[in-house]
């Protein structure tokens, strides 16, 4: 049973894998035995992470890609197949994080809306589309979407991010209903608040410390690694269309401020 948690020889594509949560996932995937293709716009960060992957004795591949452009996504998939031979898992983690400033709805421009939806939601769609036929033909594959707790709840003045992340959850479920019968599964990781460069612009909507998180601490990028490995591995073969929420208990609560603990006797 434990062997199922190994990724020995598997090939995983991680978008946005050069920084933050993506980087932490790549590190864990490689430790568990995977070869990893890493795609993001900037070459520098992804090449650094590829070097880390290679230092663990696995193969790494840096593919500069803008996921909001479907031609670049097709190229990313073709290059991975050429260089690494197959694709077992796709992790849609790229996200327009740094540019998401909360704003009143009447101030959100068409361009901003499109840019956010194009990267977060269309990007995930393009990547899933680009690997799906291949995965269906070989009868196996796993698609993992990184959504957000903000995709499950409303957030004041944060339209683009919440809508795109909510859309990713529906992408997961629809892929699960459609491709499951062909041996291809889709699941979502739902992170709570984990300080990264990407969360800088959210500061106003986010807690500054662990005080308002039920378990009393903020998340760390390393928290996501073992979940990515689990979902990428054969250990999760019967899991499909689901989400794993990793948020220090935030979404389990949310009915009153953290720490609000009424004592009410039965009368």
């Amino acid at each position: 049973m434990l062997d199922k948690l190994s990724l020995d020889g598997k090939v995983v594509i991680v978008t946005g894998g050069g920084t933050g949560l993506g980087k932490a996932m790549v590190q864990a995937l490689a430790r568990a035995g995977a070869n990893v293709a890493i795609a993001a716009r900037r070459r520098g960060p992804i090449e650094e992470v590829v070097a880390e992957v290679e230092s663990l004795g696995r193969k790494g591949l840096a593919i500069p890609t803008d996921v909001s452009d479907s031609r670049q996504v097709e190229h990313m998939v073709a290059l991975t197949l050429d260089e690494l031979g197959k694709i077992d898992v796709l992790i849609n983690n790229a996200g327009r994080t740094a540019e998401n400033n909360p704003a009143p709805i009447w101030e959100v421009t068409d361009e901003e809306w499109r840019a956010g939806i194009d990267t977060n939601l269309s990007g995930a769609f393009y990547c899933a589309r680009a690997v799906s036929k291949y995965m269906v033909d070989r009868g196996s594959g796993k698609i993992i979407n990184v959504a957000s707790g903000f995709g499950l709840r409303g957030v004041r003045d944060l339209y683009i991010y919440t809508c795109s992340k909510g859309g990713m959850l529906q992408l997961t479920r629809t892929l699960a209903m459609s491709l499951g019968r062909y041996g291809v599964t889709a699941n979502t990781i739902v992170p709570g608040f984990i300080p990264t460069r990407g969360t800088d612009s959210f500061r106003r909507s986010l807690p500054g410390s662990g005080d308002v998180i039920p378990i009393g601490r903020l998340g760390q990028p390393e928290d996501i690694g073992p979940i990515a490995v689990f979902l990428a591995s054969n250990a999760s073969d019967y899991m499909n269309g689901e989400m794993i929420i990793m948020d220090g208990g935030g979404l389990a609560g949310g009915y009153a401020p953290t720490g609000h603990a009424p004592e009410i006797p039965i009368v």
């Binding site: 794993i244 979404l251 389990a252």
Partner: peptide, 10 residues
């Protein structure tokens, strides 16, 4: 960091 959650394997 995962707590209070159901994980459905179904």
């Amino acid at each position: 960091y995962t707590t209070g959650q159901p994980i459905y394997i179904d």
